[in-house]
Computed example of a mutant assay.
Amino acid sequence: MIDVTLKKGKEKAAMLRHPWIFSGAIDKIKGKPANGEVVTVRSSEKEFLAYAYYNDQSRVALRLLEWDEDVAIDKSWYEQKLKSAIASRAHVLNDDTNTCRLVFSEADFLPGLIVDKYADFLSLQVLSAGIEAVQEDIIAILRQELNPKGIFDKSDAGARKHENLEPVQGLLWGETPPEFIEVKENGILYHINIAEGQKSGFYCDQRDNRQILAAYTKDKSVLDCFCYSGGFTLNSLKNGAAHVTSVDSSALAMETLKHNLELNGFSADQQESIQSDVNKQLRVFKEEGKTFDVLVLDPPKYAPSRSALDRAARAYKDLNRLGMHLLKKGGILATFSCSGAVDLETFKQIIAWAALDAGREVQIIKQFSQPEDHPVRISFSEGEYLKGLLLRVL
């Protein structure tokens, strides 16, 4: 196995079990490893630190896998990691929920691998050269452990370009998923389109937060922005919301939401769907003098990296300022950020600026986070990407 030696003083992150080492920390490489190859990482004193995937095309040149020198990174190692990840989610799946995230990249010691379960189908995202090199082994293990009807590749994410990988999508094994897979989450039915849907097909990371928010919606008027397939919409209606207005710019989202409303038997007079840019639509509502009891703001990732943080902060502030104008006195705002570069304290500050500009007082009722099938390793805070606030706007 090829040795990669770090510069003096650069071994601290590896010793603290952080899974990333940037290219600038590397002193020398004995040999020429292929991108995705497993290498041995050593300190400047030649002491063993970890085994890692190597990639000279990525700023994260080393993705650390294993800190025990006596453990081999072979098929049995991958099998153990996958079995452990799947077993830890077993209790999440039940009669009311048959969809969840089974593997969450670094959190499950498999950097660059995401596996989502949608009923009898699996959706994979392969985001590192190291995982791509062992993809066939991973598929074989998943087949053995889960016996799915089909495994679909959704590795079309922009993150692949950082590893010098082309985006790919298509069937990896088994049956081609139907246009709409029917799944159940918290007793609510959803039609999921893996091939054309966003990310891996469905945002199961909001499962717990949808239920929390729904408790505030009984007999209330709700505005669900960036609604996608209707998670907050459907949970609100199930809990007795008087009316829900759902806004998204995607035609596919509107089509999927329509299917989901029909699946769950909600009548047309309980809900209105609007295909529009959310920021523009919020301004239209303000001009029309419309107000709501409950508002959900769950936008896409505004800050894909720290370099985009300032621009993202302005976007989050403007969005929340517009939203606060539409809430009745004492109304509830559920606002989220899925940008890993925006930590919770920064997000709170952004909301404070939005409240000041909107001329509203705001109370924090609860803090939202990602669910247990999206765990955060204590040594890898970057994995804590989803955060949100449940606010009362006065």
Rank of each mutant, 00 (worst) to 15 (best):
S105Y: 08
S105G: 06
E106L: 12
D108W: 11
D108G: 08
D108K: 12
L110A: 05
L113Q: 05
I114V: 14
K117F: 06
K117G: 04
Y118V: 02
Y118F: 13
Y118P: 00
D120M: 06
F121G: 00
S123N: 01
S123V: 05
S123K: 01
Q125D: 06
Q125P: 05
Q125G: 07
V126C: 11
L127I: 13
S128P: 08
S128W: 07
A129M: 04
G130K: 03
I131Q: 04
A133Q: 13
Q135V: 01
E136S: 14
D137W: 09
D137P: 09
A140I: 00
A140Q: 11
R143W: 09
Q144E: 15
E145V: 15
E145W: 11
L146Q: 06
N147S: 14
K149D: 05
K149F: 01
G150A: 12
G150L: 05
K154F: 02
K154T: 01
S155M: 04
S155E: 04
D156R: 08
A157Y: 09
A159F: 14
K161D: 11
H162Y: 15
L165W: 06
L165F: 12
E166K: 15
P167S: 12
V168R: 15
V168M: 13
V168Y: 11
V168L: 14
V168T: 14
Q169V: 10
Q169W: 10
Q169H: 08
G170V: 10
L171A: 10
L172N: 01
W173D: 03
W173L: 10
G174H: 03
G174T: 04
E175M: 09
T176A: 15
T176Q: 15
T176L: 15
P177S: 14
